[in-house]
Design a protein around this nucleic acid. Structure first.
Length: 923
RNA sequence: GCAGAAAUGGUGGAAUGGUAGACACGGGGGACUUAAAAUCCCCUGGCCCUUACCGGCUGUGUGGGUUCGAGUCCCACUUUCUGUACCA
């Protein structure tokens, strides 16, 4: 049999499609298993070989689970809303829906060629109204709920209203944007507008003034995870801080649960740690410092309550509400100038420019423990969004305070014995306290840890402050001033936002004549005609951000065609959660936080049964590109091979990797590549070949290093691509794509075909020989373990060994081939299906039951023991498998070879590890 | 700065504390062939000994430790990658 991959693969792909082999149904008689890939954003560039890495791994796993008898849900869809499509639309005037659909068609075509077992009948697209109806629905639920800290869950906003009507703000412990205090009488006297304003501070989806990342180039606000190092993640445009009225999600209310529930997840340590850092829990104390000659109490947050005797000044964030209150007339000019300066700095400039800057307010606070006056300053190193936007500065033990104190010549008081603060601050939380004695509290002689505890207790008792836990995680900004996203089901009456009726969902994205903002700076939806409710009220002009649609898509797959709910009760109770989620670690602080939050919210509402969406998560590594270089000798058109380039003055030039094979350049193709290389000369190495250099870089068109999976499939077949991607190395590891070596995997498949074509398929009932059985059962054991451990590279190696062994045994046994076919089905499904049918077996190999292995068949009759002397292996003995350790020892010492290594020395001890080793310890 | 992960031949990578380098690429040699491709066989960490056979030494980033025995466990360090940062 010839291995004609094209013919085999297209034939079985058709068979799977025509027979609906991958259709999954809810089947309560079987145990479920849900394997999910992070759905892709369908970019215009199409898939490169890096994208399918995770898909192949998850496909192997889900096929394996299916063969083990599970009812496997393995869906795929598209994260279809996004910025690139919109920017392309702005440039070309084409509707983003059109280009998105074209990209999706291309992706689908590429994915289909690789032979995935996705149930495409469950496909979701975030831009599909039938899908985003439920994104809008979830937003409405969030608008209609608040977070009750006592119940520790989201509750309907009506409960809050009832409570306000009866008791005012008294007795309510809820997540709230402001410190609000009012009586029932006040509440009842307020009109609807005022009440709605109050309620807005409690809603989980709320509209509020907040400091946002504004990106002028993109004309939109961005979430914190969409900004990195002061520039937008998409496009790299500068981002500045602005106060704007925006829709937000009260993710921060869920911070404690998001942190605590990480414990039970089977995620990598590094990913959990990244989330822990992002959530950023810190235990400390909130303290009030009275301001001199004023009723104002300045509230600060600190984790170092122990350093209170070292506070020599206080600092406010420039945006702090105290700034206006504490600036004295004498200082008002200077403060005004400073605020102006800070305001015009972009976030990026603020980060790059680490110079110390600040201004004195003119006011003084009183240290409540020492009674001393301390100046209050303003500086942009204090952030408005964290803690209270004000700090007590302890220059001796905080490097930022230290830099500030040195710059403005403020005193530094060391508090820890032996700490040298003449050059830099001593930030470590360790040591013995000194200089810390006041009229009421003495910390001297205590360790830092003891001092923190004692101070906290003291300030709570004296009512100077309270113990507080802060989280770094901030609420997610949920508005985008863009076109290509989900419209908000919100309209405005007298400027107050109201929800539309649920029956009006989905609220369809309207057509516009251009995807740019309007001339008066409104978002693109401002161009839509009749963008009003039937009653004539204007509808919200912003759309939702990308993470809105990707936060609950895994639930929709469970029940994708349901018109009445995001997911039915039955489907949710059956499928529960994602058993295995495969995707990139770059989503650690975005999607994976939002999705967990979204799921927990729906859990609070009783809409889903699991408090966490993704039980086990595997991060596949990034596949980098491997660029090839040629070396042009300066001022010539002569190119020198990599090994000889040091003899010349050369300039490296990237060449398209399609002209390079195993680092050898196809010189003729190179000459044809570009007109100016047409008469290129080459200096070759001794072997008569031109060797290219290489570098590992991001895979991109501009580096000429993109490898398209279509080309690999065309040349070697999908089964080879699948096996090779797995063979490259551990799935979690980032590695460069290197097509060198794919021949080895392809060769293996051809050997497998050769082995199979010699098999005597007629003699079905012939038992395997002992040797055959051993090879096959060892393989079953190895593959079963490897798949469970996600160790696919070693599985591929095991297949290679088994095929070589069976070939060496000249095996023609049909049973051995049947088992081999079953085992390789998850990896090389096309070839396995071909074998399966050639053997005349019923149905698809997809449902071939996973074989059990027989431990007895694997056991050796005899065991080889390396015999070591003082840990160094010297010779090998072979004894019957059942030999007792004492006897093994005797045989080892009696071996003629032993005498040489004993050399008359005394044997101190002999260690026999059954089945492993004999180690003789001699003096 | 902080956090996490990693470091093994020319390359990608194997190794439940038990003969390091599986498997594959690349390289070398050979068979078949008029020839090439394809295929098959042998060798392939380094150093040394030997005509050859047989051998020996050394070796998993560096330095220490635990152990009969360490690539694997512990401590310190170096380097690389990833994430994150005026978060008080």
């Amino acid at each position: 049999m010839e291995y004609n991959h094209k013919e085999i693969e297209s034939r079985w792909q058709n068979y799977w499609r025509e027979n609906d082999i991958y259709r999954t149904r809810t089947d309560s008689s079987k145990k479920k298993f849900y394997v999910l890939d992070m759905f892709p954003y369908p970019s215009g560039a199409g898939l490169h070989v890096g994208h399918p890495l995770g898909y192949i791994a998850s496909d192997i796993y889900s096929r394996f689970k299916r063969q083990q008898g599970f009812n496997v849900l393995h869906p795929m869809g598209y994260d279809a809303y996004g910025l690139p499509a919109e920017q392309y639309a702005i440039q070309t005037g084409q509707h983003p829906e059109k280009t998105t659909n074209e990209n999706i068609a291309r992706y689908r075509n590429q994915l289909d060629k690789i032979g995935f077992s996705f149930d495409w009948s469950r496909e979701v697209r975030t831009c599909d109204p039938e899908y985003y109806k439920w994104t809008q629905w979830a937003f409405m639920q969030m608008f209609n709920h608040y977070y009750d800290r006592d119940a520790d869950k989201a509750l309907p906003i009506e409960r809050l209203e009832e409570s306000f009507a009866k008791h005012g703000s008294e007795g309510i412990n809820a997540a709230c944007g402001k410190d609000l205090s009012f009586t029932a009488g006040e509440w009842n006297s307020w009109d609807e507008r005022k009440r709605r304003e109050i309620l807005m501070n409690y809603r989980i989806a709320y509209q509020g003034e907040s400091m946002v990342n504004w990106c002028p180039a993109l004309g939109t606000v961005l979430a914190n995870d969409e900004v990195s190092e002061g520039v937008s993640v998409r496009g790299g445009h500068p981002v500045e801080q602005r106060v704007m009225n925006q829709w937000c999600l009260r993710v921060s209310a869920y911070a404690p649960r998001l942190l605590a529930d990480l414990e039970d997840l089977e995620w990598s340590d590094s990913l959990k740690e990244t989330q822990r850092n992002w959530i950023g829990r810190s235990e400390g104390a909130e303290m009030r410092f009275p301001v001199k000659d004023s009723d104002i109490q300045l509230e600060i947050f600190t984790t170092r309550a122990d350093t209170i005797f070292g506070v020599t000044f206080m600092v406010l964030a420039p945006e702090s509400e105290y700034v206006g209150l504490l600036t004295t007339p004498e200082q008002s000019e200077a403060v005004k100038a400073y605020l102006e300066e800070v305001k015009h700095k972009t976030e990026r400039e603020r980060q790059i420019d680490k110079r110390v800057s600040g201004v004195f307010t003119g006011s003084y606070a009183i240290n409540p423990l020492t009674g001393k006056e301390i100046p209050i300053w303003i500086s942009d190193y204090v952030l408005a969004g964290y803690g209270t936007g004000a700090i007590m500065a302890v220059p001796a033990h905080d490097s930022r305070d230290y830099a500030f104190a040195r710059h403005f010549n403020l005193p530094v008081i060391p508090l820890i014995e032996g700490a040298d603060v003449s050059e830099e601050s001593f930030d470590a939380k360790e040591g013995i306290m000194m200089n810390s004695e006041g009229p009421e509290l003495n910390l001297n002689g205590l360790t830092v840890k003891e001092a923190i505890a004692k101070t906290k207790q003291f300030i709570e008792e004296k009512g100077l402050g309270k113990v507080k836990t802060n989280y770094r995680l901030r609420d997610a900004i949920f508005s985008r001033q863009r076109y290509w996203g989900e419209p908000f089901p919100v309209y405005y009456k007298d400027g107050i936002p109201y929800l539309m009726d649920e029956k009006q969902l989905p609220l369809l994205l309207p057509e516009v004549d251009s995807y740019l903002p309007t001339s008066d700076g409104q978002p693109p939806l401002g161009r839509a005609k009749n963008w009003v409710t039937p009653e004539g009220y204007p509808i919200e002009l912003c759309t939702m951000p990308g993470f809105a649609g990707s936060s609950a898509y895994y639930l929709r797959y469970m029940d994708p065609h349901n018109h009445d709910a995001l997911v039915s009760k039955e489907a949710d109770e059956y499928w529960q959660d994602v058993d295995l989620y495969v995707g990139g670690a770059e989503h650690a602080t975005g999607h994976l936080i939002y999705s967990r939050f979204w799921n927990k919210f729906l859990y609070d509402l009783g809409k889903v049964v699991k408090k966490e969406p993704f039980r086990k998560l595997v991060n596949q590594g990034m596949i980098q590109g491997r660029s090839s270089f040629v070396y042009r000798i300066k001022d010539t058109n002569t190119f020198v091979s990599h090994g000889l380039k040091n003899n010349y003055e050369v300039a490296p030039i990237r060449v398209d990797i399609s002209m390079v094979s195993n680092d050898i350049l196809d010189c003729d193709a190179f000459r044809r590549w570009r007109p100016d290389f047409a008469d290129a000369e080459f200096i070759l190495e001794e072997d008569g070949k031109y060797h290219c250099g290489y570098a590992v870089e991001k895979m991109s068109k501009s580096m000429f290093n993109v490898v398209n999976p279509d080309d690999i499939v065309e040349r070697y077949g999908a089964d080879t691509l699948r096996l090779y991607e797995m063979f490259l190395g551990p799935i979690e590891q980032s590695k460069p794509w290197d097509t060198n070596g794919i021949d080895g995997v392809n060769r293996f498949l051809r050997k497998l075909v050769a082995l199979f074509s010699k098999a005597d398929l007629e003699a079905k009932d012939t038992p395997m020989s002992k040797e055959e059985k051993k090879v096959v059962h060892k393989l079953i054991k190895k593959i079963t373990q490897d798949i469970q451990n996600f160790s696919f590279n070693t599985s591929v190696a095991a297949f290679m060994i088994a095929v070589n062994d069976l070939t060496a045994l000249k095996s023609t046994n049909a049973e051995a081939m049947r088992i081999l076919t079953t085992l390789i089905a998850p990896f090389a499904p096309h070839l396995a299906e071909e074998f399966h049918h050639q053997m005349g077996l019923e149905g698809s190999v997809v449902d071939a039951p996973w074989p059990e292995y027989d431990e007895d068949a694997i056991k050796d009759d005899s065991v080889k023991y390396p015999v070591s002397f003082n840990g160094k292996a010297r010779f090998t003995i072979e004894v019957p498998a059942a030999t007792a350790p004492a006897e093994v020892e005797a045989i080892a010492l009696a071996d003629p070879a032993a005498a040489k290594w004993l050399d008359g020395k005394e044997v101190k001890k002999v260690i026999v590890v059954p089945g492993k080793i004999v180690n003789v310890v001699v003096k």
